[in-house]
Design a protein around this nucleic acid. Structure first.
Length: 488
RNA sequence: GCGGGCGUAGCUCAAUUGGUAGAGCGUCACCCUUCCAAGGUGAAUGUUGUCGGUUCGAGUCCGAUCGCCCGCUCCA
């Protein structure tokens, strides 16, 4: 059976481990949940994708500049951004049905029910208690007491058999300063998103980079989320890498820019070789928008686990800058010299998960093909993303062939990541590099010694061409540039 | 975090009622080899996820723990 589009993630998990793309973190100690390490091939693939994004988003735009903000930030940043509040969900479980609910949502629903039943007075009472929860014993305890006192039952099972209310803080907290103290005063968070590193530097960049609105700030970096359920390989990890660009625009220009960036970003995904039919843009319904967003859309890929978000495009309005202006007391307004307008810019965000992009590239590239009764496993990824660009082989282990092979290897090494291999049969060496996604193999044979030629073998269709040994680099360059996923 | 399933070599998997842990592939070395996982010879690799219990004896039974998968939930 040949495979053109993956149905199971297992294949990628196995291949990732056996070829050295991705390993589980701390594996020799039994692994650490939802944390993964990149191996030799994975590290190269990751770098290539990161570089492609950075080139696209900064180098190709005169009005987008980069920053590299620290992971640690002032604790107030997360108060201003809404994360301290929004990242704490009080949850409660129904022991009968094993369903989990948000405690505050349960109470809200109960209030609505009371109103519907005409018990306006009691509804007001509960609403008052809900609004003041957290002021008596603690948030969890107060919410639990309301549920108990008003005998709020589980919506689905109708049971009244609750666990305690527990809070899930999705931000990682750590101690700042060498002397550990139990006090929260020293607590800092590992950033749950990189975006805030851009917003807090907005003024600095404005003051130094000689940019005028509209302009963008790009950043690639780690973010950390203590996910309740972190699963599905590198799709949802506790430590992950984001590639973000925040585009600052004049209020009113936000909708147009939002649409434009959604299109541009979709084109990028196609440009790195992802097949168009497995990509789609999925707008968020207005009632599902994040607290900061006016409009949002996912760019999704059809993973073996279904359609899933790889990138999010958000119209963040002036929410973040206004919040930071309020919390920091620093003016973050923009003054337009020509129109003499003064305003807090609106922000259009493009935020793509680097690890998710890697997974997408691996999934989209994965093929199993029938070749003369044997299965060929091959990663047909864009040549410019491939961890190893070319393999160089002497057809057999003979000194003359080895000599020319080594010379070609040395030349190519200046510009490309290459691998010299003389072990095993030639077919085996081709197939090994197929699994690594290497698009080109150069083989030196005896005929070639006569006229200084070699054969280049293409990964995607296994076709071979005889070319001049002096033109190998050139052929690789043009074949990389002209590569299209349709030709896979 | 809850419910269910699973955990044996780098990968995929065997191992009778509880009775000496194996195979295929891969890896490495050498030989052979003039273009698609060829062949030959040899080699390395496991506290059976971890800890504890039951037993004369545990990969197998029991408990705990860690991790993975599916569902619930969550996804700012």
């Amino acid at each position: 059976m040949s495979i053109d589009h993956l149905q199971q993630l297992d294949k990628i998990v196995s291949l990732s481990k056996s070829r050295g793309f991705i390993f589980q973190s701390s594996e020799i100690y039994g692994g650490l949940g939802a944390v993964y390490d990149y191996g030799p091939l994975g590290a190269e693939l990751k770098r290539n994708i990161r570089d492609a994004w950075w080139r696209e988003m900064t180098q190709k735009h005169e009005n987008i500049v980069g920053v590299d903000a620290a992971i640690f930030m002032h604790p107030k940043v997360w108060e201003a951004s809404g994360h301290v509040e929004g990242f704490n969900d009080p949850m409660i479980d129904d022991k009968q049905s094993k369903k989990r609910y948000r405690a505050d949502m349960l109470i809200e629903q109960h209030i609505e029910k009371l109103r519907k039943d005409g018990k306006e007075k009691e509804a007001e009472q509960v609403k008052e208690l809900l609004d003041t929860s957290g002021t008596r014993v603690g948030l969890c305890e107060d919410l639990h007491k309301i549920i108990m006192d008003y005998e709020i039952k589980a919506p689905e099972s109708g049971a009244f058999d609750w666990t305690d209310v527990r809070q899930f803080n999705l931000m990682f907290k750590t101690q700042f300063g060498a002397v550990a103290s139990a006090e929260d005063a020293d607590a800092v968070y590992l950033r749950p998103e990189t975006a805030q590193g851009i917003f807090v530097n907005y003024k600095n960049v404005m003051d130094t980079a000689r940019q005028q609105i509209p302009f963008g700030i790009a950043q690639v970096g780690k973010a950390f989320r203590n996910e309740v359920v972190a699963r599905q390989f590198v799709f949802r990890m506790r430590e992950f890498e984001q590639m973000e660009m925040q585009y600052f625009v004049k209020p009113g220009a936000d909708e147009e820019q939002y649409n434009e960036w959604l299109n541009k970003r979709m084109e990028w995904h196609k440009g790195i070789g992802i097949r168009e039919k497995y990509l789609r843009a999925e707008p968020h319904p207005p009632d599902k928008l994040a607290h900061y967003a006016r409009a949002a859309a996912d760019i999704q890929y059809l993973f073996p686990i279904g359609w899933q978000e790889v990138e999010g495009i958000h119209n963040r309005t002036d929410f973040d800058l206004s919040q930071h202006q309020e919390y920091s007391g620093k003016k973050l307004e923009y003054f337009d010299q020509s129109t003499r307008d003064r305003y807090v810019p609106y922000v259009v965000e493009t935020s793509v998960g680097l690890d998710r992009t890697i997974l997408m590239v691996l999934c989209d590239a994965y093929r199993e093909e029938e070749v003369e009764g044997e299965t060929r496993t091959v990663l047909k990824m864009h040549p410019e993303l491939a961890p190893i660009t070319a393999g160089i082989f002497p057809l057999v282990k003979k000194p003359e062939l080895q000599e020319l092979s080594r010379k070609i290897e040395k030349d190519l090494r200046e510009d490309y990541r290459v691998l010299y291999d003389e072990a095993g049969s030639i077919g085996k060496r081709y197939r090994r590099l197929d699994e690594a996604g290497t698009p080109f193999c150069i083989t030196v044979d005896f005929d070639g010694l006569e006229d200084n030629t070699v054969t280049i073998r293409y990964r995607d269709d296994m076709k071979q061409e005889r070319i001049s040994a002096d033109k190998v680099g050139e052929v690789i360059r043009s074949a990389s540039k002209s590569w299209k996923p349709e030709s896979k």
